[in-house]
Design a protein around this nucleic acid. Sequence first.
DNA 1: TTGTAAGCGTTATCAC
DNA 2: GTGATAACGCTTACAA
Lengths: 327, 327
Amino acid sequence: MSSIKDVAFKAGVGIATVSRVINQSGYVKQETKERIEKVIKELGFKPNEIARSMTQQKNHIVAFILPNTKHLFFGELLYEVESALYEKNYKLMVCNSSERIEKELSYIEMLKTNRVDSMILLTNNDIAHLLDKKYRIISFDRIFEGIPYVASDNYEGGRLAALHLIERGAKKFMFIGDDQQGSDNIVNTEVSKRRLAFIETLKQKGFHHVIEIEYPLGNYIDIPDEVQQQVLLHKDVDGIFCISDAVAARVIKTLELAGKHVPKDVKVMGYDGGRSFLNLGKTITSIDQQPHLTAKAIVDIIEHYYKNTRIEPFQITPVKLVIGETT
Amino acid sequence: MSSIKDVAFKAGVGIATVSRVINQSGYVKQETKERIEKVIKELGFKPNEIARSMTQQKNHIVAFILPNTKHLFFGELLYEVESALYEKNYKLMVCNSSERIEKELSYIEMLKTNRVDSMILLTNNDIAHLLDKKYRIISFDRIFEGIPYVASDNYEGGRLAALHLIERGAKKFMFIGDDQQGSDNIVNTEVSKRRLAFIETLKQKGFHHVIEIEYPLGNYIDIPDEVQQQVLLHKDVDGIFCISDAVAARVIKTLELAGKHVPKDVKVMGYDGGRSFLNLGKTITSIDQQPHLTAKAIVDIIEHYYKNTRIEPFQITPVKLVIGETT
DNA sequence: TTGTAAGCGTTATCAC
DNA sequence: GTGATAACGCTTACAA
């Protein structure tokens, strides 16, 4: 690959002038500029980004640490984040943590070694004390002291779910989620507000008894058998709000296998947007997190980091009720 | 961040010696080594990877260009590729092309500008002539002249599908796929062998008439209404093989809405592995591409590139029949 | 308006 | 065993 030197030599100018042309910085005589551009084209010269990163101590690469890219919501979020970054000319590195803290840490090292210069963090591990504030870090959904975060409006999501189930005529409610969502957990997560809002809203409307099923945080895909048993145990429940569409799908299947009709006997809602394209049977009523909006908020913060402008401590993006066939 | 210079100064040695210690190259007296390691720890020094890339003209970053990360199969493949690369200490950049050729080209530029030093390409666009053989490029599923590629055993997949449907008692067959899969297309894809094998195998078993429905390549998620109408039109068909689980899911839903029972009236198979965790209703019988195996094959080729060892022109990885509730 | 040269943080060569 | 020093390809003072 030809370098700036080759261009300078062939055009009979100094390398600084070539640099000025490719960066459109400083003054260059029109004539010189054209000559240089011609040579650049002839040689097919492209500036070496590694060398640029070297002088600027920045590479405009963002790392996204997330549990995995298999979960439908994560795949969508990743897609939106990458698309939004692309517009602004940042590049995205994916880092599957599989929820393992040691993998997360090894990825976080990339900030110290200048492999990436900013990082989006989506984790349930309590790694706050390991996050150096001097780096450009953004958290999604989890609240870490001193780290800006982005989340969709989980409280509103829980509220909408409660109101919708009430409107559909449900009288006896259940909430199903994984236990990291509890408000008294080590990791403070925005997600816990789904349950909170759901229960508070029901209370306000006169429904004081809500069955809460929480289970150990899993792989986002499978839910334990006990949960399914619990669902069948409470035969009078007719309105169920699940922490995700994946959980809702399982719950619906469990109910139907047991001879219950959804939504006639039981109304079931999920969370994330119901965009499950492999949705055999019914489409799920859900709360859409609108990942394109959270992605935009994340990229906004990243830009503020790079521009050294003021960063809001957090950004909450709107959610939307999506009515499917399960309520 | 402290540099190698700071370490050298504080340890009272030259920078070359420090370099030898961090790279475990060349001879360093045990005593010196220990002193340097102590200083490294004290300073929290980490070598700057940008500078390293500078001298080595390599950054061990791999780009993965793919249509999107929303499709379940892509999300899985991405996960497996990233995991396999992680083991070997490579980093992965994701590049959603949304099937747009200009985005693909802009990502391919990253090879020229040294932002990444190898690339996995998953595309339906005919960009063979734009791919410079001097770069480390690997294609998934598509055959481009002179570019090594990896694919799962699509022929075997089609064959297994035919045999399974026959075994389940189907007599009248249909294939549903998108038209880029046709063998006479501009882009030569391994995927076309699914159809080929399906039809050839049926013929061998005495079934000579297969209805083939092909439609313009879509976004991998929606299938056109016409396809669904076609499905209902051929009332005597009782064995359908679809190009993906996503398509199969739609077909099944269409059939069931029309009052047909799957699998009693019609047996339907998909492709990709049936791991649709949002699978309400029935689980789909499918051909598992075993993305962990293709991922491994891809990473193998990448390693050969870096080591400058001989690269096989292609790698075909095994598939597996997964029996669900739709056949 | 342009060119020279220092510097970014490493690695690698070559004396000592 | 070890330490200067040149390179890697660029940006950016500073001088001309």
